[in-house]
Structures are given as C-alpha cells and as structure tokens.
Design a protein around this nucleic acid. Structure first.
Lengths: 161, 161
DNA sequence: TATTGTTATACTCTATAACTATA
DNA sequence: TATAGTTATAGAGTATAACAATA
C-alpha cells in the first residue's frame, strides 16, 4: 500500500538529540532497571532451564519445607492461580515433591534432585547479586534496599490512604 | 479426582513464620517494587483510558515533536515492533498525528486533542512521582536514581564484560 | 460458610522472524 | 545493501471469574 507523501519533510531527530522526559523519574528508572535485571536473571538461570519465577520458587520452598501453595501466595503477595503451573512444572521435573496431608492442603518440599539444583541456583543468585551490586558502595546498597521498600509501600497504598 | 492422603500431616507454616530467602536482594526488591509501581501507574492513567505504555509514549512524542518510530525505539531501547500497535492506538484516538515525509520515515507529533490529554497526563505523572517519593528524603531520592542507573548498566552488561 | 487447590481465560509487556517499501 | 515500518507470533508475568473438594 502506498502512503501519501507531503511536501514538508519532517525534522528528523537523531537519538542523541532526543529528550527523554521520563529520565530521572522513579517510575521510569525503576521499570527500566527491573526489566534489565529480569533479563539478566533469565540468562543466569537459563543454564539450568529455569525461568526466574521457577528459580525463585525453588529457593522459596527450599527455605520453607512443608509450606503450602496458598501460604506462598499470601507471603509472596502472588496470585495463587499462577503458582499451579509453576509448581506442576517443578514437580514434573522432579525438583519439588508434594505431600498430601489434612484437607486439601498440600505440603511442598524439595526432592533430592531439587536440592542439588538448588545449590546451583543459590550460587546463581549470589553471582547475580554480586554482579548487580558490583559498582555500588555498601552504603548505596543498603540505601537502595531501604528506599525500594519505602517506594513499594507507597505504591501499594496508591490512592488508598 | 480424589487425592491419596498420607498419615503424616505436614507441618503448616503461617505466612508470618515463613522465611523469605530473597528478601533484601536487589533483584527481588526491584521486581516487587516495579510491579507495584506499574500497578499504580495503571490506576493513575486509567482515568483517561491510557495504559502506562501509552501515557509514556504520549509524553515522549510531546517532548520530541517530529520524531520517528525507529528513533523512539533506539532512544527508548524498546522494540520497534511493539511501537506499531501502540502508535496506531494513539493515532486512532486522535491523540497522535503521523506526517509522511521522505522515504518511509513517518514523523510523529501531538494533535490538539493530544495536547489537552497530555496536560492531564503530565499532571498524572507529577502526582505519581510525588506520591511514590512521599516518604523519601531528598538525599534518598537522588541516591536511588543514581543507584538504579548503575544497577541497570550492570544488568545490561551481564555476562558481557 | 470459609479455605485450598484448580481450570480457563485474558491482558500487558517484551521479543524474534519474516516481510514490504524506500533510499 | 541498509533502513523504516509492518505483520504474525510467541512467551513470561499478572489478574479475575468460576469451580470442586474439604474442613
């Protein structure tokens, strides 16, 4: 399809000359950094065929043997719905075990194979944290964690004071 | 389907007793905060039927009249592919105008209606930033922006030193 | 009735491959 | 050949509604 052209050629801006009106804003810098960090996580845990969410869940269950799906959802402020396929995938690969107990509650725990993978995943998390904080001072590191929690709280209470 | 139950009832953990092994880590706190902030953005701009990405694009074009899609993609480090539907949506709603110039380049600019909406969106961004940084000191605010940029750089160079 | 787990579904953001049109 | 824009498609994360099983 042929577009109609007009006589007045628009001014072309090269990226170097462009204004970034959101540069320096909390929402934009946070988003940009988070996306970059998620990509780094994907690369780091990809060597064990694990997605960021799967590696996180494995670490979480490892630290909380016997926990249930709904407990994770509440503590992690995650949607219980989305844990179903996540847990199923890790169980299918033999990393997680489900023990059926009272009622409908299902206790989650790490299998022997899962323990071995978790050791690698732990090392991966450590490597990731080290690399991400590589050029931060100790003061900056502490400050940003505190600041992130404060911002997160403000964002969660947005329009609900 | 009936699940088989076992005799040994698993230990049940209440959320308060659960360990969060990722608490305090850069990757997890960043992700959590970013998700919360995106939800706040969705709420803020929803009153004008704009998604976060649409509000951002509107602000971006407003600050760079005459820019093209590929320039935005390069400067914003975004995928040019995903700008297509975004731009189309804003054009369909009469907020953005496309001026066809030399070659295939299409200059983007804000329409009169877009200008009016942008004024609201600007106020929304300001409100968002004020609320998010409400409980931060000025020093914390500056420090976190700097730290986020440092972390973003480290994450982008992950495994590519 | 309240809670736990489940299925189906949908939306947002991001990404890759393959294509057309133009210089 | 290189660049601008487009289409189709896919995947990851998040979310709601509706449901069955259990206490």
């Amino acid at each position: 399809m042929q577009f109609m052209t007009v006589s007045s050629a628009p001014m072309q801006l090269t990226p170097a000359e462009m204004n970034d009106p959101l540069s320096g804003s909390l929402c934009h810098e946070l988003r940009k950094t988070s996306v970059a960090v998620m990509a780094a996580m994907t690369g780091e845990f990809g060597q064990w065929q694990l997605k960021p969410s799967e590696a996180s869940l494995l670490k979480y269950v490892g630290a909380n043997p016997g926990c249930t799906q709904s407990e994770i959802a509440r503590a992690h402020r995650n949607n219980a719905t989305n844990l179903v396929s996540l847990i199923a995938r890790l169980e299918r690969d033999g990393l997680l075990e489900r023990t059926f107990g009272d009622g409908r509650a299902i206790a989650l725990s790490i299998s022997a194979k899962g323990k071995a993978v978790l050791a690698d995943v732990d090392a991966g998390f450590q490597r990731l944290e080290d690399r991400l904080g590589e050029h931060l001072t100790v003061e900056q590191h502490h400050l940003i964690i505190d600041a992130l929690r404060i911002i997160c709280k403000s964002a969660c209470h947005y329009d609900k004071p």
